[in-house]
């Protein structure tokens, strides 16, 4: 089966003409988004050109150590992004966020490589970096939602939380409703997305593979595997993140250390 026909740089440039439509809409309605839109399009283009260059280089070199280093760089960027977009304090959370994402992502990717794709080299760049990146990209929003919800819910419902502790509940038990609420909020969109997959949406990876010449029956198998992997990775990374941060964010009496948790000082 033939791969997708290459797009010339000139042809790709013609695609940018389509942007005249959103630019016209945002300008006409004074949405104040035109500048952000242009910056975002430029960044996306530049970042993807660079990604194409380094991925080509990494695939060719295919050194397990280098692949892991690259995955670590992606993890660090992902952890930073989780925290940048939340109300949580960078210094307190960066290490637990990194470790939670690293353990979850690496564990799931290696499982996929070993038992699903059945690779001989589990650290093969084409799979380790691409699958790892895809898991990270999809777990990020779940992690942001979950971490912020968890700590903000405890802060906002301080009296209810203290009531549980004051009646003798151990820390783990007093935190349970907030863990449940934050995990539910983070995982629900993933469940909804799986419900409608293939009916109202054709996922990007599957369509990408088919455009690249893969047989649809192969593409759907990869898509099924990646959807399960994304959901498992989200659940695992959120659970680990909450577990790792619990020790730092609560004092020995179970009180939330707000000054360590939030960017702005909340009392």
């Amino acid at each position: 089966m033939k791969g997708a026909p290459d797009i010339s740089w000139l042809a790709l440039a013609s695609c940018f003409l389509l942007l005249l439509i959103p630019i016209a809409v945002t300008a006409r309605l004074h949405l104040g988004l035109t500048r952000d839109l242009l910056v975002a399009v430029c960044r996306m283009t530049l970042q993807l050109i660079l990604a194409g260059l380094y991925l080509g280089y990494l695939f060719e070199w295919n050194h397990p150590g280098m692949n892991l280093v690259w995955l670590a760089v992606m993890l660090l960027a992902a952890s930073g992004s989780v925290l940048h977009n939340s109300a949580l304090r960078w210094r307190t959370f960066i290490l637990p966020a990194f470790l939670a994402l690293a353990l979850a992502t690496l564990g799931i990717v290696l499982y996929l490589n070993a038992f699903v794709v059945r690779l001989e080299n589990l650290f093969e760049a084409r799979y380790l970096i691409v699958l790892g990146g895809m898991l990270l990209g999809n777990c990020l929003s779940a992690n942001i939602i979950s971490a912020s919800r968890f700590y903000q819910a405890i802060h906002q419902n301080r009296s209810a939380y203290e009531s549980r502790l004051g009646n003798g509940a151990p820390l783990k038990e007093a935190l349970r409703p907030y863990v449940k609420e934050s995990l539910t909020a983070a995982l629900r969109p993933g469940i909804a997305s799986m419900m409608t997959m293939g009916l109202v949406s054709l996922p990007g990876m599957m369509t990408g593979q088919m455009l690249g010449g893969s047989d649809p029956s192969v593409a759907i198998k990869y898509q099924i595997a990646i959807m399960i992997a994304i959901f498992t990775c989200s659940t695992l990374s959120i659970s680990l993140f909450l577990l790792f941060t619990r020790r730092v964010c609560f004092d020995p009496l179970g009180n939330l250390r707000s000054q360590l948790v939030f960017k702005t000082n909340k009392t």
Binding site: S159, A160, L165, G166, A169
Partner: peptide, 20 residues
């Protein structure tokens, strides 16, 4: 000490004003 406070909480019935 923290352990004395945890022990006290286990012996306590606490009903707060906001009644959660």
């Amino acid at each position: 000490s923290p352990s004395a406070i945890w022990h006290l909480r286990q012996q306590t019935g606490y009903i707060s004003q906001e009644l959660h």
